[in-house]
Simulated scan of single mutants.
Amino acid sequence: MGRERTVTVYTRDGCHLCGDAIETVRRVSESVNHDVSLDIVDVDTDPELQERYGERVPYVLIDGRPRFKYRVDEDEFRDHLTGE
């Protein structure tokens, strides 16, 4: 099994792109030979996060590094999980 990866998705309630991003992250994570920890963070629960991200969600980090904004490309996400 590969090393553990942490994926953080900044989201907000009612964001259909966020739902799509989370679905892609889960689907790809299940298909790779790595342990993937998924953290979903609602930016509306924290004024600082709301200020930082606002409407610019979903925002996806892998191991703390920004990788995607608005949409997650399945192939590129897989490459990030398996190529580093």
Rank of each mutant, 00 (worst) to 15 (best):
G14A: 14
P58D: 09
P58N: 13
R71F: 10
L49H: 08
V9N: 02
D63E: 15
V41T: 11
A21S: 12
P47V: 14
R71M: 04
V72Y: 02
T6R: 14
D13E: 13
E84M: 00
T11Y: 03
Y10K: 02
V57G: 05
D44R: 14
G83V: 01
E84L: 06
E48S: 12
M1I: 04
R71L: 05
G64P: 11
D35N: 15
R65Y: 00
D35W: 00
F68Y: 11
R26S: 04
M1L: 11
E30Q: 07
I62M: 08
G14K: 13
R78A: 02
E23S: 15
D63F: 07
D75V: 00
Y10N: 03
D39H: 02
E30P: 01
V28G: 15
C18Y: 04
T82F: 01
E84Y: 05
G19P: 01
G14R: 11
S31P: 03
A21C: 01
D73G: 06
L81V: 07
E76M: 01
R3N: 07
T11G: 07
T82V: 15
G14F: 07
I22P: 04
R5F: 08
V72Q: 10
C15E: 02
D73M: 02
D63M: 04
S29F: 04
G19N: 10
S29L: 02
V43W: 04
E84W: 01
C18I: 08
T6E: 15
D35A: 10
R26M: 11
D46S: 11
V9E: 01
T11H: 10
H80R: 08
V25P: 03
L38Y: 05
G54W: 03
R78V: 00
V43I: 14
V7G: 02
D75K: 08
R12K: 12
Y10C: 03
E84A: 07
L49G: 09
V7T: 08
G2N: 13
D63Y: 09
D75T: 03
R52L: 04
I40P: 00
T11C: 05
G14H: 13
L49Q: 10
D75N: 06
S31D: 13
R26L: 13
T6P: 04
E51V: 01
E23Q: 13
M1C: 10
L49F: 08
S29P: 12
S37F: 03
E55V: 10
K69M: 05
S37H: 15
R67N: 05
R78S: 00
E30S: 09
K69W: 02
P58M: 09
R5Q: 12
Q50R: 15
L61R: 07
G14D: 09
D35L: 07
V32T: 14
E51H: 13
R78D: 00
M1E: 10
A21L: 01
H34Q: 13
V43G: 01
D35G: 11
E76A: 05
G83R: 12
F77Y: 14
V32W: 08
D44P: 11
S31N: 14
D75S: 10
L38A: 03
V7D: 06
V32R: 08
E55K: 11
